[in-house]
Amino acid sequence: MKYILFSLAVSFLMISCESEGELTKTEVGSTPVLSESVLQYSGVFTPTSGIDVTGKAGIYLDGEQYKVSLEGFSISRGPDLKVYLSTSPNPNEFINLGALGNGMSQTYVIPKGVDFNTYKYVLINCQQYNHLFAIA
């Protein structure tokens, strides 16, 4: 009996579950870009060694809000990919815009006051292992 109990308990501990809630229903990067938004800057993604990437990044002015939009985008899978605005093609001085989503078209809100003459690059970086995946 005790062994059965123990086995059941261990089995139960191994169970992993995940289901969406109110705050996680929307896709990551699904912030809309209005049609009247104006493209300010753009660039094409280039991969780092061993990575496949396609698509481009565009900085839009949406009213008074800047947004970065990834278009026609796909990239090799990574454990914890993030979208950065960066001062250089390396993730040294950056603004973390949050987790990368799954879609081919993704948009992220940029915090107020960013100088795009300084933050000229959009990076896709694996935060967990600090491994750079792509640069635009």
Partner: peptide
């Protein structure tokens, strides 16, 4: 000892060892 935790709330439900 082995622990696990299952949390539920506004973010949804997430549980693991």
């Amino acid at each position: 000892k082995i622990t696990s935790s299952f949390a539920s709330g506004s973010f949804g439900q997430r549980g693991s060892i």
